[in-house]
Simulated scan of single mutants.
Amino acid sequence: MGHSKAQKEANHNRIIEAAMDLLRHKGLDHMGVAEVMRAAGLTHGGFYSHFDSREAMVAEALCTAFARDERRLDKAAAQRGGEKRRAMLEAYLSPGHRDNPVKGCTVAALTGDFTRADPALRHIFTEQVRRYRDQVAAMVPGAAAEGQALFAFSAMIGALLMARAVDDEALSDEILAAARRHLAAAIEPE
């Protein structure tokens, strides 16, 4: 019995959603096709009617996750009107983001994995870093906006990862607060 085009699209989207969550939770190399299909509530045998390979699924899941992350960053920045930089920092360097890596920033969840990824996935990552640089630079006035944006984004990821790694919640909160405070000062208009 065949599936309708709408059902196939819905199943495809479920696979991508499951893959995004599992990628952020387990990493690039620790997620299998069978596990993704099980998480999507589908049988393993249906995978190849959606993707040519695991790599194709991972690439699509990454692109979808990155696009969603960009929209989330834009939404966070828009919540404070003219204070976009501060709103972005508060949303990104928050206990809520720290405590929910599966639904958080894909770059933060997978940066270490990309150092060992195949060239096609590294290229997707590289293009995303460029888009984030441009997105954050648009919030930072001045001739050095791109450099400040790269610094800010790198420091945000580093602070978030450290806050997630320590086993002392007070220290974790302190890391996030210090990063917010110092980054706000570093990327304020000159």
Rank of each mutant, 00 (worst) to 15 (best):
A145H: 15
K26D: 12
H25Q: 08
Y92P: 08
V140C: 10
A10L: 11
G112H: 14
H3Y: 14
R133V: 08
G45P: 08
Q128L: 03
S4Y: 06
R14H: 08
Q7W: 15
Y48F: 06
A138C: 01
T106P: 07
A59W: 01
L161G: 13
L89P: 02
V102A: 09
Y48A: 08
D168V: 10
P95Q: 12
L28N: 00
A179G: 06
L42A: 05
H25K: 15
G142M: 00
R24L: 02
A56V: 08
H182P: 06
I16E: 01
V33Y: 04
A186L: 11
D29K: 01
E146N: 14
E60M: 09
G112I: 02
G45N: 09
A18D: 11
S53L: 09
I15K: 01
L42M: 15
M1R: 03
E70P: 01
P141C: 10
A144G: 15
A138E: 07
A18F: 11
R38M: 11
D69K: 00
N11D: 14
E174N: 10
D29V: 01
A6H: 08
K75T: 13
A138M: 02
Y48M: 06
P95F: 07
D29T: 07
F153M: 03
G142Q: 04
R86C: 00
A185W: 12
A76I: 05
K84C: 07
G147E: 15
H50Y: 06
G81H: 04
M162F: 15
P95G: 02
G147K: 14
R130H: 10
L23F: 11
D69R: 03
L160K: 00
P95S: 09
G41P: 04
K5W: 13
D69V: 00
E55H: 13
D74S: 09
G112T: 01
A56L: 03
A65E: 08
E17H: 12
Q79P: 11
C63S: 09
P189M: 05
V102N: 05
V136P: 07
H12L: 03
E188P: 06
G96T: 07
A91S: 11
G46P: 02
A109G: 10
I16G: 02
L183P: 02
A18S: 08
C105Y: 03
A77W: 08
A163S: 10
R14C: 02
M156I: 01
Q79D: 11
A10I: 14
